[in-house]
Structure formats: structure tokens, C-alpha cells
Amino acid sequence: MLQVFRKPDKGKMFGKQLMVEFQNLGVDSIGIVAVISTFMGAVVAIQTAYNIDNPFIPMTMVGFTTRQSVILEFAPTVISLILAGKVGSRIASEIGTMRVTEQIDALQIMGVNSANFLVFPKVIAAVIFNPILVIFSMFLGLAGGWLACISFGLVSSADYIIGIQSWFEPYTVFYALIKTIVFAYLIVTISAYQGYSISGGSLDVGNASTKGVVYSSIFIILFNLILTQLLL
């Protein structure tokens, strides 16, 4: 594990690898994050609107509740879980394949610190890019909620917008981003470890990829509770 965080053997190669990982782990996930966030925001808004049947509760509450749910929980946690599935399985199977086809041995023989070379750029890429994805997801979630409210005539556009602006605490975004960074770190290290420690054949690559997703999801849920206790 410690090997992962040594100084990279060669800065230039590290930079190149980092760019590849930004693409693979980050940019490639934008599509799925966009779709899920929009629908998620829409559903939260609709459910909240249906649950408010007391005339004394103003309809601006819909916007407020949607914002709180999306920023505090849905964007950081649900998106991280989705990424655990998408990115985690990819990392575990990529590194696992390199293990069974002796590519990791080949790196090792050349004198390259393989754990560092393979895992460190992924950690950095995810820790930087996942928060960007989550912020993106927050905006789309709110937009999805707005779209649902006005297209189904649940809440007026003005009420919704007043709602999402009321009692806003920037700390909630900070809290969400801290969670996201911890989750990103968990996803990469857990699934990379699953792939790296394979010994055997291609069947084990499938197993490693499944384990990568399952363990990182469980750890995300666990750390979600711990961080929420600590930070809120």
C-alpha cells in the first residue's frame, strides 16, 4: 500500500498517465452522471410536492427540500455509488488483467514501481475529478427538479427558485465535497487492490471486478455514516 504513494519514478510519465485517467475515470462518466442527476432531482421534487398537502406549508419548501436532499445526499453519495460501479469495476478489471497477463511483472522487471505507476494517477484523477462531477450533478439535480415542477404544474417556477435559494449554507456543499473526496479515494484504492492482488486466471479478473464494486460500495455507505456524524 505504501508503495502507491512514493514519489513517481518519472514526472513526465506520471503526467501523461494522469491525463489518460482523467479521460477514463472522469470525462467518460459525465454522460451517466448527467442522466442520473437530472432524473434524481426530478423525482425528489415530485415526491416532495406530493407530500406537501398542508396549505400552511408554502410551496417554496419543495425547492428547499430538493436542494437539501440533492446537495447533502443524492449528489455525493448516490453519484459515488454509481461511480463505484462504473469506475471501480473498470479499475479492478484493468489492473487484474495486467496482473494475469504478467504486464505487472513486466513493469516490475523494468524496475518500475508498478503499484505507484498504476494506482497513484488513478487516485489523483478521481480525487480531483469526482468533486467536479458531483458539483455538476448538484446543478443538474436542481435543474431536473425545476423541470419536473413546471412541466407537471406542481410548483411555479418562481416558488421553486425562491425555495432553492432560501437558508442556503455553503457548509453543506463543503460537507458534500469532503464526502466525495473520501469516497473517490475508497473506490480507487479498494478496487485497485482487488485487481492487483489477483493470482490466477481470467476468471479471477471477473471476481476481482465484482469484489471491487461490492467492497467499495459497502465502504462508501459505512463512511457516509461516519462522516455525517463527524461533519454535521
Partner: peptide, 17 residues
Amino acid sequence: KIRQEIGMLFQGGALFD
């Protein structure tokens, strides 16, 4: 340092795919 003086051909080639 010694490893950089070693070249190795693996059973399956082990090219970076």
C-alpha cells in the same frame, strides 16, 4: 539499478495492451 540491466520476455508477451 540491476533491474534496468535486465530484459525479460514473458510467456505470453506481456505487452501493455
